[in-house]
């Protein structure tokens, strides 16, 4: 499953960050590396960005970027 599909308030573990373009590298620099637990905390209305809880902080990314992050639920 990709991160944009992860139901709100469910924790999952990152399996893979797909593509190594500059944006994906930025996400990894922010701590979204394989093995990291992540949770979708909120979704902005009208298909707006997601709010993630990752490594003790809150990070907002767009659904498009979240599509590149493969996660598995426990």
């Amino acid at each position: 499953m990709t991160l944009d599909k992860l139901p709100t308030d469910k924790t999952a573990r990152i399996l893979k960050v797909e593509g190594h373009d500059s944006v994906m590298l930025r996400l990894m620099e922010m701590g979204l590396v394989p093995g990291t637990p992540v949770r979708v905390r909120k979704r902005a209305p009208f298909g707006g960005p997601l709010e993630l809880k990752v490594r003790d902080y809150l990070l907002s990314i767009r659904a498009r970027e979240a599509q590149g992050i493969v996660v598995e639920t426990e």
């Binding site: 922010m30 902080y57 809150l58 990314i61």
Partner: peptide, 9 residues
């Protein structure tokens, strides 16, 4: 621009 935005406490 990608939105990679920290939402600080």
């Amino acid at each position: 621009p990608p939105l990679v935005l920290e939402l600080p406490p």
